[in-house]
Computed example of a mutant assay.
Amino acid sequence: MKSIVLVRHGKSSWEFDVSDRQRPLKQRGINDAQLVANEFIKSNKIPKHIFSSPANRALSTCKIFTKIFSLSENSISIEDSLYDFGGENVLRFIKALPNTYDDIMIFGHNYAFTSIANIFGDKFIENVPTSGLIKLKFDIANWQDLKQGTTELIIIPKELKQ
């Protein structure tokens, strides 16, 4: 069995004249990431392998999660291929993972995460919102054999605020 937790970066700010990769989180993005991370750890095992896009907004979201998980920032692997909006590079990355990795968490971007969640999960998701989390489970032994699995968990920040 394998599982993937996909976390879209928190809401980012357009207030600064910086490149796309350097855009920071807005306060709402920070707050939403904290809400989702706290909700996740209530009833889920923390994946042993955590990967992030190098984009500031994704890596900052990842650092919020690792802090709440009481993990060192050294537990984060930054992967350039996760700075991907279509999903092809993310899929190549997943399929190339060592088969000794059973549970992974990836911080990245849309449309890639919505696409992957819909292709490989069994629940349709219109759009993974900022700070949204999707957990997919697969009955496979090798990442290269990635196929449709089950959508085990969906955490939407807006739903935690109601």
Rank of each mutant, 00 (worst) to 15 (best):
D17H: 06
F85E: 06
H109Q: 03
F113Q: 03
L71M: 12
W143T: 00
I4F: 11
Y83K: 02
G87P: 07
F93L: 08
S77E: 10
N38M: 06
I154S: 01
D20T: 04
T66A: 04
H49A: 10
R57F: 07
P157Q: 08
F113R: 05
I4C: 09
P24M: 08
F113G: 06
S75H: 09
L97V: 02
K147G: 03
E79Q: 13
L59P: 03
V7I: 08
V36D: 01
D122F: 02
T150I: 15
F138P: 05
D103G: 00
K2S: 11
F65P: 09
R21Q: 15
E126S: 13
T114P: 08
N89S: 15
F51H: 09
A37C: 07
V18P: 07
W143G: 10
P54G: 08
T130M: 01
N118M: 11
Q148N: 11
S77A: 11
V128G: 11
Q148T: 15
D102S: 14
G87C: 07
N118F: 12
H49M: 07
E79M: 13
Q27A: 10
S75C: 13
A96I: 01
K63Y: 01
I104Q: 00
W143I: 03
H109E: 02
I104H: 00
V18I: 10
K147S: 12
F124Q: 15
T130G: 00
E39A: 06
V36G: 01
I30Q: 02
S60R: 13
K161Q: 15
F93V: 08
T150N: 14
F85I: 01
M1V: 14
W14E: 06
V5H: 12
G29V: 09
G149L: 04
L133H: 02
E126M: 03
S43F: 09
D103L: 00
K123H: 10
N142G: 11
E126V: 03
R28K: 14
I104M: 04
F120I: 00
H9R: 03
K42P: 03
G149P: 05
N142P: 09
D122T: 03
F107M: 10
K26W: 00
R57Q: 08
Y101H: 08
D20Q: 09
R23F: 05
S43L: 10
T61P: 09
E73D: 13
G149H: 02
F93T: 05
S75V: 03
K48R: 14
N110M: 03
D145H: 04
I50R: 00
I134A: 12
C62E: 07
V128N: 10
Q144P: 01
S3G: 04
I119Y: 07
S115Q: 02
F93R: 02
N74T: 11
K45W: 04
F113M: 09
I41F: 12
S115E: 01
D103P: 00
A96C: 12
T150Q: 13
L35K: 13
L133W: 01
V90L: 12
R8I: 08
F51K: 08
P98N: 12
F16N: 12
P24C: 10
